[in-house]
Design a protein around this nucleic acid. Sequence first.
DNA 1: TCATTTTACATTGTGCACAATATAATTGCG
DNA 2: CGCAATTATATTGTGCACAATGTAAAATGA
Lengths: 147, 147
Amino acid sequence: MDANRDALLVQLDQQLCFKLYAASRLMVKAYRPLLDDMGITYPQYLVLMVLWESESALTVGDLGERLILDSGTLTPLLKRMELNGLLRRQRSDEDERQVRVSVTKAGKALQVKAIDWVKRSSSQLHSEDLDVAALQTQLKGLLKMLG
Amino acid sequence: MDANRDALLVQLDQQLCFKLYAASRLMVKAYRPLLDDMGITYPQYLVLMVLWESESALTVGDLGERLILDSGTLTPLLKRMELNGLLRRQRSDEDERQVRVSVTKAGKALQVKAIDWVKRSSSQLHSEDLDVAALQTQLKGLLKMLG
DNA sequence: TCATTTTACATTGTGCACAATATAATTGCG
DNA sequence: CGCAATTATATTGTGCACAATGTAAAATGA
């Protein structure tokens, strides 16, 4: 009957969105050892990665654009990181609306830990059911469409 | 130099985890119209999907196993849904540690809205950069490995 | 110029996530 | 049986996400 066929459309196992949601959380959980060692959370790790890549200071808006997060999320997160000595926040002189965020020595120092951990654990992500490169490509396509 | 090559390992664009994190949030955002219409959140939608599939009541543990969520997340979430009349929570008679969760008429009624919306909007998810079926297969492999 | 609009960030309030811990019921074992 | 271990859920505390709103600075333009 049609009603049964329709019901398949809202079955959990059919949902791309649920797989992404579950995979995202499980992946973050896999980072736990590193994050605990660094003394930060996953979103904070993302902020650090963006800062590590940048030569100079970035505005809150820059970070938000890169991480797809708004000031409601970033402002308190950055304040916590500043409190922990990982970065500096200072109002821009040219444009007082902007807040310029720059990584401190302590924040930069964590990059070594991260690199070391990634080197040691990247080999874990292998199985016959999984082609990581293909998955990344597919996700890039999805993000392009959703963004 | 080696330090520069190492730095690539912690670049945002290289991170499978970030792509999953971003894609997950953007996908949930795409469900906003449906969720607003149903008057629920995405995690609540997931709970409803599991309940819709089940003939009988499920325990909190059953839901947690299916959604990979613990009681710290589920208990308050289920209480809110009960308050909104979408489900019932009752201590099991056989085992008083368990709480049995069952969908109400109001909760069941929302399935129609969901099916209708999915029917109308599933065609949106198409582009040349994206093979949804392949992505689902890859994610299933990833989840199997992470789970 | 100066009022209007836009922009950048901050604040508030709600609802997850999840680690850690607590509590009470059930199970297992000597 | 009696009690230690296990199990199922609840509670507490912290930190995101994000919608909605506030605020002040900068850009715009008649």
